[in-house]
């Protein structure tokens, strides 16, 4: 002990075992947490009769027929549903990034009478539960004859209704040195040109974060499509999954798992490629997901 102790910092208790113990524990926790996800994916590739008879992750043989059954399990194919989800999500991303960055720029950078009032009202909407505006919005869209179209899902995104993203961007914009705006003003820029030529190019990290979260939230959104979409050809994948369990295909667990697995793929892909952005986004803003 005395021999090795010399290499160590004085008074600090080192234990190789505590490290191994921690790793073992963390690995167990990870395994327990991820097992259901892995089980879902593996079940989608198992022969139908194995799903509820074996907890194993490894099918006796790979059987991808569930994907085919699930894909055509409803009257409308899942290709349509995924396409619908994609359309709604992409439009939402565009809408959110555009409208929220405009508002955020005004709040973060422009000085105009009343901006403190509007900013606090904007923050207030962050706290307001969606359910309060839900029914009047529904009535409004009903009267506009927008029910059973994508408009109720997409138009609010173009009107900066997700205050959260405004807040996220305001935080980021405030971190960009004000001297850059001032230099640009002296260089003859209008507010619009500062926004377009200076602010946006310097904000790609936050724009990407907002875009990714916006995509994921919209892709996963269930409530709004559930209320606004009636015709199955307009369903998004989330609503379609729900009607899958409601339909007579109750017993087709393989198909259900197959489609569920497909439905989480886009989110998973973002997770794999943009993990760092997502984690930073959460760490800096305290997002709930």
């Amino acid at each position: 002990m005395s021999e090795r102790a010399e290499e160590r910092l004085p008074g600090v208790q080192y234990s190789r075992w505590s490290g191994i113990r921690k790793h073992t524990m963390l690995c167990c926790v990870s395994l327990v947490m991820l097992y259901p996800l892995l089980w879902m994916v593996s079940s989608s590739m198992k022969p139908e009769n194995e799903i509820f008879t074996s907890a194993s992750l490894f099918p006796s043989h790979f059987d991808l027929s569930a994907y085919k059954r699930g894909w055509f399990g409803l009257d409308v194919s899942f290709g349509r549903f995924f396409l619908n989800s994609l359309i709604v999500s992409v439009l939402s991303v565009i809408g959110n990034v555009m409208s929220c960055s405009l508002a955020a720029f005004a709040f973060a950078r422009l000085r105009f009478p009343g901006r403190h009032l509007w900013f606090s009202l904007m923050l207030g909407t962050l706290m307001l539960p969606y359910h309060v505006v839900l029914i009047p919005q529904y009535i409004l869209f009903l009267n506009l004859d927008w029910i059973d179209t994508f408009l109720p899902l997409v138009v609010p995104k173009f009107l900066a209704c997700d205050a959260f993203f405004i807040f996220l961007m305001v935080q980021f914009f405030r971190g960009i040195p004000r001297e850059l705006d001032e230099a640009a003003r002296i260089d003859g820029c209008s507010a619009w040109r500062i926004y377009w030529k200076i602010m946006l190019p310097l904000s790609t990290p936050v724009l990407a974060t907002a875009a990714i979260f916006s995509f994921i939230f919209t892709w996963d959104d269930f409530f709004a499509p559930l209320i606004y979409l009636g015709d199955p050809t307009h369903y998004t994948s989330q609503v379609a999954l729900r009607s899958f369990i409601d339909s007579t295909n109750q017993s087709d667990w393989g198909g259900l798992f197959a489609m569920s697995s497909l439905a989480v793929i886009p989110v998973f892909v973002f997770f794999v490629f943009f993990q760092r952005l997502l984690i930073e986004g959460i760490a800096t803003t305290g997002m709930k997901r």
């Binding site: 040195p177 001297e179 850059l180 001032e182 230099a183 640009a184 003003r185 002296i186 260089d187 003859g188 820029c189 200076i198």
Partner: peptide, 16 residues
Amino acid sequence: PAQRGIAMVFQSYALY
């Protein structure tokens, strides 16, 4: 500012 015929060098340089 742009119409005053001035140019400014900032403490932080403020290069884009």
